[in-house]
């Protein structure tokens, strides 16, 4: 009975679940007995661009990794278009944090992008002209095609991030999950990335990104998900990205003046 009541209390119904390209129910991740993410529900609308925001240590990356099965959650389930994650992994492309890998690894830019074609190539499939052409095309979309033959260690941080995005584009997925794609990148890269993400949205794909720069949330995204271990708010930017929800998520730690975020005309 109690469970039933709780379910009725939720904002979204199970009917929404089937349509959502990315829905999380009751996700809890804990290190020892300290929860990093506690009982989180999330329903991403199809074709939206959603920012996951929250203070440092709020569990944003952890939530994403657990939802993707990279980390083992304590409990919770994830559905993609209403189907369990394992059946539809090929519809999801993930862009990890740039700092999570060793960039001195002996590999070229084009080889990294080709990793995005692993599902197609399999263990022994030969890399053919059409695979190379697709990888080059993905590099072109992020403006990195001139760098295809470079060793990845020679790239700047922003260029590395764009190569990671190109690798995800190679997967040609329905749902793109990005972990801090704008962290520590130059202005040119930020522009290039947001242009690619907006193209994806135009093509009907769904984009979810962990984001840390509150000042650009309104310009880049149409939905937000506020997290601080627990879910604070979720919805269209105009409804969920308010002084009250930000106060609830960040407490007194909100460094950026709220005046900057909300006084601008909401066009």
């Amino acid at each position: 009975m109690l469970e039933l009541a709780a379910r009725e209390g939720r904002a979204t119904t199970d009917a929404d679940l089937g349509k959502s390209p990315f829905a999380i129910r009751g996700l809890t991740v804990a290190y020892g007995e300290k929860p990093a993410v506690f009982s989180v529900d999330m329903t991403v609308p199809e074709g939206s661009m959603t920012a996951i925001i929250g203070p440092n240590g709020a569990g944003k990356s952890t939530m994403l990794k657990a939802a993707l099965g990279i980390l083992r959650p304590l409990s919770g389930q994830v559905t993609v278009f209403g189907r369990p994650l394992d059946e539809v992994r090929d519809q999801i492309a993930y862009v990890p944090q740039r700092a999570s890998v060793d960039w001195d690894f002996p590999t070229r830019v084009i080889d990294v992008v080709l990793m995005g074609l692993y599902r197609e190539l399999g263990l022994l499939g030969r890399v053919r002209m059409r695979h190379m052409a697709r990888a080059m095309d993905c590099l072109r979309r992020v403006g990195m095609h001139e760098f295809a033959e470079r060793q990845i260690g020679q790239l700047s941080g922003g260029q590395q991030q764009r190569v990671f995005l190109a690798r995800a584009l190679a997967e040609d997925a329905e749902l793109y999950l990005l972990d801090e794609p704008f962290a520590g990148v130059d202005a040119a890269t930020e522009k290039a990335i947001i242009a690619v993400l907006k193209d994806l949205k135009t093509a009907g794909r769904t984009v979810v990104a962990v984001h840390h720069d509150l000042s650009t949330v309104r310009d880049y995204f149409d939905h937000v998900f506020l997290l601080n271990v627990r879910k604070i708010a979720e919805g269209p930017v105009d409804e969920a990205f308010t002084p009250e929800t930000l106060q609830a998520a960040y407490g007194g730690r909100l460094a950026i003046s709220q005046h900057d975020l909300f006084s601008r005309n909401r066009s």
Binding site: L68, D90, Y94, P96, S100, R119, R167
Partner: peptide
């Protein structure tokens, strides 16, 4: 070896 997290998302 290069990126275990990404590898995991490739099944």
């Amino acid at each position: 070896a290069f990126d275990p997290e990404f590898a995991a998302t490739q099944g």
